[in-house]
Simulated scan of single mutants.
Amino acid sequence: MREPTARRAGDAPLVRRTLIGAGVLLTLLFLVAPVAVVFVQALAAGFGPYLQNLAAPDTLHAIWLTVLTVLVVLPVNLLFGLAAAWAITRFSFRGKSFLVTLIELPFSISPIVAGVIYLFLYGAQGLLGPWLQQYDLRIMFSVPAIILVSLFVTSPFVARELIAFMQTQSSEDEEAARSLGASGWQMFMRVTLPNIRWALLYGAILCTARTIGEFGAVSVVSGNIRGQTNTLPLQIELLYNDYNAAGAFAAASVLALIGLLTILVKALVEEFGPRERNEQS
């Protein structure tokens, strides 16, 4: 005779429906509603004024600067993440745990603090400021400062995803390729990279989203120079402080749309990546 199974908390139909309803309600209230308000306010005056607000020179420059930052930061982080993950997961050496801690350090530092650190390093009164001035080099309150601080803030994303994934993968395929005479480059391109491509793509998505939306660190090192060093998040704040609500919501809608696309791509990667790995295994 089978013993009755113990009832779990939440098994009762009323409790289950209440919990699901509460979850849906809170999601609509705190996540969907704010995003919807952004698009409603951005298009309140019509599609024509919305496009005019987006076509404002300062806003276009902010969008261009944000895209430029991503185009520089993402490839560097991909190379760094690949190198770090390969070293940590494929080699044993003294100080490996310390290296992992250093890679994750930007997660534990406030972006504002990161910006201040770069200011103390490269600012006119910073540690390297006099040397930079001697050679007529300017980093702070310019595009290079935005790129540098964005690199620091986003550096762990690709590396962390690859390290976690590669630690669960065996190196048998790589050892087999090496025994067959494959060079290091051939082994990486034909064996390692195909195996980690989904984790690499996932890390790239997170890195891109964080770079686009970074505000705190960039606000410290950029100088908030109108039409020169304002990225899209900074431009939104500037428009809002100028009482240009329509322009602020129009710029914010671009960030919101990018966020929604990021979530969609992330969901697709999570759906098809594990499925393909299961089919191959």
Results as ranks from 00 to 15, higher is better:
61 H>G: 10
142 S>A: 13
177 A>N: 00
197 R>G: 08
71 L>W: 00
58 D>H: 13
152 F>E: 08
245 A>M: 14
133 Q>E: 13
278 N>V: 12
242 D>M: 07
123 G>Q: 01
152 F>K: 08
106 P>G: 10
43 L>Q: 03
126 G>L: 03
35 V>S: 15
206 L>F: 03
101 T>A: 14
136 D>Q: 15
211 T>A: 15
67 V>G: 11
174 E>Y: 02
4 P>K: 12
20 I>F: 08
277 R>W: 09
32 V>W: 06
160 R>A: 05
114 A>K: 10
189 M>I: 08
241 N>Q: 15
226 R>V: 15
62 A>K: 02
195 N>G: 12
141 F>D: 13
158 V>D: 00
228 Q>T: 07
39 F>I: 04
174 E>M: 01
133 Q>L: 06
183 S>H: 02
136 D>V: 10
66 T>C: 06
189 M>T: 13
26 L>D: 04
94 R>V: 12
112 I>M: 08
32 V>M: 08
146 I>C: 06
142 S>K: 05
37 V>N: 10
172 E>G: 01
202 Y>T: 13
46 G>K: 07
63 I>L: 15
40 V>P: 05
137 L>T: 08
198 W>F: 14
253 S>Y: 05
280 Q>W: 08
208 T>F: 02
45 A>Y: 09
196 I>S: 01
116 V>H: 11
179 S>H: 01
220 V>C: 04
162 L>K: 07
235 Q>C: 01
7 R>V: 15
125 Q>S: 15
132 L>K: 02
188 F>A: 00
255 L>E: 01
266 K>A: 12
154 T>F: 06
70 V>Y: 05
232 L>P: 13
194 P>K: 09
